[in-house]
Design a protein around this nucleic acid. Sequence first.
DNA 1: TAAAGTATGTTGAAATTTCAACACATTGGA
DNA 2: TCCAATGTGTTGAAATTTCAACATACTTTA
Lengths: 219, 219
Amino acid sequence: MRKFLNVFKKCPLFFDVSDDDIITMLGCLKARTDIFDKNYTILSEESPAKYIGIVLSGSVQITQTDYYGNRSILGNLCEGELFAEAFACMQMASMPVSVVANEKSNIMFIDCNHILHTCQNGCPHHQQLIYNLMKVLALKTVMFQQKIEVISKRTTREKLLTYLTTCAKKNNRNSFKIPFNRQELADYLEVDRSGLSAQISKLRKEGVLECRGNYFNLL
Amino acid sequence: MRKFLNVFKKCPLFFDVSDDDIITMLGCLKARTDIFDKNYTILSEESPAKYIGIVLSGSVQITQTDYYGNRSILGNLCEGELFAEAFACMQMASMPVSVVANEKSNIMFIDCNHILHTCQNGCPHHQQLIYNLMKVLALKTVMFQQKIEVISKRTTREKLLTYLTTCAKKNNRNSFKIPFNRQELADYLEVDRSGLSAQISKLRKEGVLECRGNYFNLL
DNA sequence: TAAAGTATGTTGAAATTTCAACACATTGGA
DNA sequence: TCCAATGTGTTGAAATTTCAACATACTTTA
């Protein structure tokens, strides 16, 4: 287990827990690991959600298949990232997504109940673990809320301005860098890239903002 | 405190906790209550998030003011509902929203840290409380995720079909009732009501679905 | 350095949405 | 019973988006 310590250290679930405590706790938590080959389905839609997954090596893809059989990719997770944590906390009877190995991957599973119900051994950092898991969920909730606020706007222009002013607020200043290139920004705003570019040009001409690359300045 | 027991019983934070245990715990948690007059700002944007709020009587509005000073209403909360729980769990330095009393309202505040770090008294149901809070956050995460999946579609038609097929999946059958009237459905999908009505008619003519009121049947 | 690849901006046509206005049905009082 | 209020469906015009295709700048690497 120790060989993955560097991964645990960047996993938000183990934030502020010492190396030794991590190892001890993984025992208490009855964590188990598994290796999956490329394209293997780690968790399938419809299966009950019980375990939180952690990517120890490799990477996985979150996918979803709709009513008509069209598969869409919801995201990619790399080393240290968690999956299924919300579904596991809810004890959902059937997962709404599948998790598939992108490449040969080591995955760790922890029964969510073992995290939520503190063990008999009185692990000193069990509370921290609960605290961390709560933070992960809370952060996700807040991020989703912000995204909904942005993409619920009707036009590309409004979406863009809502996003940019949120950034300005966060940075406490009118000029800032965004963490996206144009295509990524379009994907985040859920709009067409070329239309987005056009709107940025227009806002620039109108004197509403300045922009060079991913650096923006609201006027 | 006992006079609000009927409210606590429908509050998800106290699910599966007995009346007596609720009262005992509220002491341990150092919960405090306050009365706010209509239009009073209970929590203001920019103030640090520390407490989870519970509406004991009356109702509150979640609002947000953008860069240009436009205020928008994000939601209404009634008796038994929680607010600011995600922000408090994250210990956000400044709230991204305000909470305003819609009418004269009794509000209870609980320091989030008191929930997350179990007390010395060994309250038997403290674990249940943590578990419940986690479920609240997890449920919200999942609901937001589903909403994003729906409204990230580009056209009204796609949004509607994505929503309806999700409902069908949940109900395990092709016919079901939705919890919205047309205007509410349009608000949820973030589209124009009349355009939504037009799309429903079109899908009906194409033989894709049947519908009477809020009852739908996918063909 | 040249070539290939990637990121971005521009454009016009087609598709779609929004918006406003109105028709019709249903509901709940007065 | 009648009236007002509410919910829903329809329509056409204006605004906006998407889509495809291409131009231009910047990067990477052979």
